[in-house]
Amino acid sequence: MPEFNVLSRTVLVTGATSGIGFETARLLAERGATVLVHGRTAEEAGAAVDALVATAGIDMARLCAFSADFSHLEEVETMAARVAAEHPHLDVLVNNAAVAAPEHHTITADGNELAFQVNFLAHYLLTSLLEQALTSEPGGRVVNVSSSLHRTASIQWSDPNRARRYSRLAAYAQSQLALTVFAADPRVTAVSIHPGICETGLLPLYAHQGATPAEGAAHIVRLCDPSVEIVNGAYYDRDQRVEPAPGSTEERTVKRLTKLADVLVHQNA
Rank of each mutant, 00 (worst) to 15 (best):
V263Q: 13
E199K: 00
N95I: 01
R222P: 08
H123G: 02
L125V: 03
V188W: 02
S192M: 03
F22L: 03
H266C: 13
E103W: 12
P195V: 07
A178L: 09
V99D: 02
G210Y: 00
E103D: 15
N268L: 08
V242S: 09
V143M: 12
L205P: 06
V143D: 10
N268Q: 06
L126T: 05
D262E: 10
A81V: 09
E75F: 02
E30Q: 11
V37S: 00
L126Y: 00
L260Q: 12
S192L: 04
V99L: 05
G216F: 02
L149E: 07
D262M: 05
V92S: 08
G201E: 15
P246V: 05
V143F: 11
M79A: 00
E113K: 01
R9E: 14
V145T: 15
L63I: 01
R62A: 12
L36F: 01
N161P: 13
E74C: 03
E137H: 12
E23W: 00
T108W: 02
A171V: 04
H123R: 03
V13K: 01
H89C: 09
S148D: 11
A261G: 08
G57Y: 14
L73H: 13
E215M: 11
E75S: 07
A45W: 01
V228C: 03
N5Y: 11
T189S: 09
E23T: 02
G201A: 15
A214R: 15
A98K: 02
R252D: 08
I193L: 15
V254Q: 05
N144W: 08
V143G: 11
V94L: 11
E74K: 07
L223K: 09
